[in-house]
Design a protein around this nucleic acid. Sequence first.
DNA 1: CCCATATTGTTAATCTAGTAAACAGTTTAT
DNA 2: ATAAACTGTTTACTAGATTAACAATATGGG
Lengths: 158, 158
Amino acid sequence: MASVRKTDKRIEDEALVETPDLEEFIGYNLKRAYVIVQSDFRRTLGEDGFAPRVFSALSLVVQYPNVTSSGLARMLGIERSGLVAIVDELEGRGLLKRTNVPGDRRVQALVPTAKGKTAYAEARAAVRAHEDRLLSNLSDDEKATLMSLLGKIRATEA
Amino acid sequence: MASVRKTDKRIEDEALVETPDLEEFIGYNLKRAYVIVQSDFRRTLGEDGFAPRVFSALSLVVQYPNVTSSGLARMLGIERSGLVAIVDELEGRGLLKRTNVPGDRRVQALVPTAKGKTAYAEARAAVRAHEDRLLSNLSDDEKATLMSLLGKIRATEA
DNA sequence: CCCATATTGTTAATCTAGTAAACAGTTTAT
DNA sequence: ATAAACTGTTTACTAGATTAACAATATGGG
């Protein structure tokens, strides 16, 4: 036990210590779990893979072709100014196009390219694999329960 | 329905739209739920209340008096360099003291002040109230289940 | 006892994600 | 016609976090 001396009142393995006061809070557990899943996502998708938010944006563009930037921002729950860089990246990679909309010259409909659709399909499979592997100690039932409870939290926002 | 025109193929209320591909991922739901809880935490504790990470640090210092900065960082799962500002803030508010440790002149044990202990007790109550209110559509059973499932995710990290 | 190795707290530089405010152009509603 | 609202964007800023380096100190193996 490398770092422990006789006179040491400190805890042996601080990373595994129990923190009763904090662990009674949903928020704390939510954050810790989120950090774990997120960093595994990044690790799995790799250096020049999609960041989570870019993946999410691409997913919505593929599912809702002709969505606008504003609409996409609202779906993602972020400011539309924050979406510019994301759309820039996806357009720069040739995965979507900003296109004009006949009836309204303010908006630009976001349309996935063929390349964008296949890239999304692959990324989606990679993300599935990442979660299946990372969360292999949860049963399908447990995953479904977790989803539904997280959904209840999301439903508090309106 | 203000923003909808006859020719509009866009979705009426994008913020509430279903995003099937994304909602099948734990990570996405985890993040959305986390953002909701976190921002309600900040809103509830107010402008000059504790930020979540400061609250967590204070909690651990109160529960583990004489913990070191390094130990605290390990418990919180962050780099020790990142803890400096947090401890600075808590010490600046008079809620803890950096103290010398007789046996080891490298380390500084973090000791909560009396003020720190009472401030923590109050903050803890405020955080409890925030979660009770925000998550009032979850039963105690559901909260306990959620905790245990989040704990399973946290357990994947080791 | 010596020396390599490790640990502690800290600073500085950098990165990412996100917000807020302003903007010009455009559309809608009164 | 005019006020109000919406769109996409830029710019400036903030928060949170990481990495690398540092001096001071401590530990363990030979």
